[in-house]
Design a protein around this nucleic acid. Structure first.
Lengths: 341, 341
DNA sequence: GATCGGTTTGCAATCGATTGCAATAGTAAA
DNA sequence: TTTACTATTGCAATCGATTGCAAACCGATC
């Protein structure tokens, strides 16, 4: 089973009594080669455990069949590592890429050098990039795109860009979440999350839009620009309650992680959820359903997201036109909000 | 900035007025080359955005500097994708590998062909493997190891094997968790998790040991061999309570995800945690602390785990002896268990 | 038997970097 | 000015697979 000496295409060809060119073509079922020859070569290959040397093949073909997935973390927060949503996207990307015949090289923005184009593409480590998260600035992404790197981003689809951005309809998400709270009778709705971040800006816009459409006036004091961590949400809610008492009856969170933090803070103060305060999260991570009460949230279809990203990337390889696109979202109503007014 | 024509080592060498051999050596600071020459080449390289072609380099050196990380999922359950613990390990591996100059190729056992040795190593896609999770059978792993593939596994360290296995001291973990419950006054302790799985076998052994040492007799009926999903835990607790009433006052879970499911089921039945039933989880995922009540759990040091795995792998590259090893674990006491009797 | 069109196959160059060994430049001693 | 070394640099082979183009083969037709 274990053959110590390397077994190369040349060896295989010799065994089969053909040239390496024939062997190579036979292996990939090239119709130029007679059927019988193909089968012979292929069966010998199987028998001898032959597999194409990827390095050589990549060098010759200038194609790696590898896509680098970059977790573009915001600052140094723990967001990346602890946020199940991002990781779920990575998992789905893994599936989708494999299905398309690509492998997934995992990176994160702290590691990879600043020059993505160079590091991944010029150096022929990958054929393209998928960047998960826009970060606070698009500098690195823009730079890579400007260098002609095939890339796709998970983020806010309406952001003007020269590359396709896939994401949920965040404005609608914010709108749905807020409207649901209002219909449940909420009048003073907190917005938890930093509106400076592209996706969040939209969600916040949807939040304000919903308020206005229902005759409520957005109060800037109710928007809490915090980091995307449960801890930040927990602290924020505690501070707010301490300072102003329970001056709100609903919370729109820009991620389920924040919702969990908020929920914890409120429960510790014996605030009744959803009677006294209703909470809506975002992303529908597994945990949302497991909480007590389970959390109403905006679900983003991650499988569809992965497929769209991969397909946009493949289009770039083929020179076809590409564009930003949205992914389905839907409101998952659970127990952290009141059913109706 | 963007140069369309490929810029190769040869071009760089020509610009610098040296041969490719000199250029190559200069780039990697080979002392054979005069300092001045090195600097000249390096600065030209920077200036022209040169970066070594990985494919060519790999072909020539027979070294990829890539490690394939395989998520070895148990069956078709959602475990992989939803379990934050595994993903945390991946994230830590990413860091540790990068620090050691390696890249991380992400795979999972559904994708990769059955013949890992061939697919990853012979084909020169990676230099070694890190397998996360032993799975229910070691077949694939053993096969790869037998083929001489450098590999390390995250699993139960006491499993006899020809390759190093890194993992927590699971017996001690089970023991600690159970003892803690007993000291809190629990008499009828449920064990939630499938003892068939290597790591879980040990945790279960620790559980039984703790019971015996405290004069309690393990009751087989209290061991619930369920899948590693919150849903399974939720269903299991519901079934048990429905059939036998609340015939237990403590639960040892083999993962926090199970603890969450159990917690939810109990809360829905208005069982008081920890007064009526205490719960201990395993892994200390972020959520454990965020639950209400927060969950007492066994923490495994994932950063240390990643470092040990990587270091064991590097040792294999260097031909040094290797061996299985354990990672620190500790009991994190929170609110889901009673402080004392 | 020569010719022709279509099938199959093989030759040899190529992808870009690395490295053992030979060659040259440089320096100090004779 | 040689000689003897050492410090630098360059030559050319090599890693293994792919592919454009030319060559060989095959059967059929004239």
């Amino acid at each position: 089973m274990k053959s110590d000496a390397k077994f190369t295409l040349a060896d295989l060809a010799q065994l089969a009594g053909v040239s390496t060119s024939t062997a190579s073509r036979a292996l990939k079922n090239n119709p130029l080669i007679k059927q019988a020859t193909r089968e012979k070569v292929q069966s010998l290959a199987r028998e001898h455990n032959y597999s194409v040397n990827a390095a050589a093949s990549r060098l010759r073909t200038q194609k790696t069949n590898v896509i680098a997935v970059i977790l573009n973390l915001i600052d140094d927060t723990e967001q990346s590592i602890s946020d199940p949503f991002l990781l779920k996207i990575v998992a789905e990307l893994n599936k989708a890429l494999n299905a398309a015949g690509y492998e997934l090289l995992l990176s994160n923005s702290f590691m990879a050098s600043d020059d993505w184009a160079n590091y991944f593409i010029t150096s022929q480590r990958a054929d393209g990039l998928i960047v998960v998260g826009q970060g606070k600035s698009n500098e690195k992404i823009d730079k890579a795109a400007a260098a002609g790197v095939p890339l796709v981003v998970w983020g806010e689809p309406t952001t003007p860009s020269s590359y396709p951005i896939i994401g949920g309809n965040n404005r609608r998400g914010g709108y749905l979440a807020t409207t649901h709270l209002i219909e449940g009778g909420c009048k003073h709705i907190l917005f938890l999350g930093d509106p400076d971040h592209a996706e969040m800006t939209e969600r916040h816009a949807g939040y304000e839009q919903a308020l206005r459409e229902h005759g409520l006036t957005p109060d800037p004091a109710l928007t809490k620009p915090i980091d995307i961590t449960s801890k930040a949400a927990y602290d924020c809610i505690n501070d707010t309650v301490r300072q102003h008492g329970l001056n709100f009856d609903g919370i729109v969170c820009i991620s389920d992680m924040l919702a969990l933090g908020a929920l914890k803070a409120l429960k510790e103060r014996y605030v009744n959820i959803p009677a006294d305060v209703s909470i809506v999260g975002y992303d529908d991570i597994t945990l949302a359903e497991l909480m007590h009460p389970s959390i109403t949230t905006i679900r983003q279809d991650t499988q569809q997201a992965a497929q769209k990203m991969v397909s946009q990337l493949l289009k770039q390889f083929e020179g076809q036109p590409t564009g930003s696109d949205t992914v389905d979202i839907s409101l998952q109503v659970r127990r952290s909000t009141r059913a109706e007014n």
